[in-house]
C-alpha cells in the first residue's frame, strides 16, 4: 500500500507544480553557479577540485533544503486538508503511510541529483574527478536527505501543522548548515571535532573535501564522517518512532 501513497504524492508533486518549480529553480541555481565558476575572472582560476567541492556543497545544500520543505508539507497537509481521517479509516497501516511519503521525498532527491549530473560533468571536464564526486554526492546526499526526512516526519506527527514543522526544520537545517560553511582552517580544536562528529552536514562537506582536495577517496578513509551521518539518521529514526507512538496514543483526531 505504500506504493499507492508514493504514486499519489509523486503525481501531486508534479500536477501541483511543487517539485516542478523546485527542480526548475535548482537547475537555474546550478546554471548560474557553473557559469560563474567557469567564466568569472577569478573564480574560474580555482583549482578544479575546489570548484567541484564548492559545487558539491551547493548541490547537497540546495537538495537538502528542498527535501526539508517537501517533507514538512507531505504529512502536515494531510492533517490540514482533513484527508488524514479518511486515510486512516481505510486499511492503510501507519507504516505504509510513512514509507510511501518517504519514498516521495527520496524520489524528488533522485530527480534533483539527475538534474545536477550534467553540471558536474561539465565542471569536471578534463579531469578524472566526476565519477568519485558523483558517487560520494549520491551517497551523502541520500543519507543526509533520508535522515532529515525522517526527522521532519517526526516533527510533522507531533505538530500536525505545516508552519510549525517547517519553522523548526529550517532552524535545525541552519544549525547544521552554519558551522559547515566555515572554512576548514577555522575549524580547529576539540570544539570543531565535536561539531563534525555530531553535525551530519559538516561531516558530509568535510568528507567531500577529504575526497576531492586531499584525494582520500576510499570508504575506509571517510568512515568517521559516514559514521556521523549514520548516527544522525539513527537518532532521527528513534525520534520518528517515538513521535508515531505519541500520534497513535493521541489519535488521528487530536484529543
Amino acid at each position: 500500500m505504500h506504493k499507492l501513497i508514493w504514486k499519489k504524492d509523486i503525481l501531486a508533486e508534479i500536477y501541483t507544480w511543487k517539485s516542478a518549480l523546485w527542480l526548475l529553480l535548482t537547475a537555474l541555481i546550478y546554471s548560474v553557479t557553473c557559469y560563474l565558476l567557469l567564466t568569472n575572472k577569478e573564480l574560474s582560476l580555482l583549482d578544479q577540485t575546489e570548484m567541484l567541492w564548492l559545487l558539491g556543497k551547493i548541490i547537497i545544500g540546495a537538495s537538502l533544503l528542498v527535501a526539508i520543505i517537501d517533507a514538512s508539507s507531505l504529512i502536515t497537509t494531510e492533517f490540514e486538508q482533513e484527508t488524514i481521517e479518511d486515510l486512516f479509516l481505510s486499511p492503510l497501516p501507519v507504516r505504509d503511510f510513512i514509507l510511501g511519503k518517504f519514498l516521495t521525498v527520496m524520489s524528488v532527491w533522485a530527480l534533483m541529483y539527475a538534474v545536477a549530473v550534467p553540471y558536474v560533468l561539465v565542471s569536471s571536464a578534463g579531469s578524472n574527478l566526476s565519477a568519485v564526486f558523483l558517487a560520494y554526492a549520491a551517497l551523502y546526499g541520500t543519507l543526509l536527505i533520508a535522515g532529515f526526512t525522517v526527522l521532519v516526519f517526526g516533527l510533522s506527527f507531533l505538530y500536525r501543522s505545516f508552519k510549525n514543522t517547517l519553522t523548526t526544520s529550517l532552524v535545525l537545517f541552519l544549525a547544521a548548515g552554519i558551522p559547515a560553511l566555515f572554512a576548514a582552517t577555522l575549524k580547529t580544536g576539540i570544539v570543531a571535532s565535536v561539531i563534525t562528529a555530531i553535525n551530519p552536514l559538516d561531516a558530509a562537506f568535510a568528507s567531500l573535501d577529504n575526497v576531492l582536495v586531499d584525494y582520500h577517496a576510499s570508504l575506509s578513509a571517510n568512515w568517521p564522517y559516514l559514521l556521523s551521518i549514520l548516527g544522525f539518521s539513527a537518532a532521527a529514526g528513534v525520534f520518528l518512532f517515538v513521535s508515531v507512538r505519541i500520534f497513535e496514543k493521541r489519535g488521528v483526531i487530536k484529543e
Binding site: A20, A27, L28, S31, C34, T39, V115
Partner: peptide, 20 residues
C-alpha cells in the same frame, strides 16, 4: 580572460532549465 563558453557550459546552463 575572455571566454563566454568555457568547457561547453552554455548548452547545459541554458539548455537544462529550458528543457525542464
Amino acid at each position: 580572460k575572455q571566454n563566454l563558453n568555457p568547457g561547453a557550459v552554455l548548452p547545459v546552463a541554458l539548455g537544462e532549465p529550458i528543457f525542464l
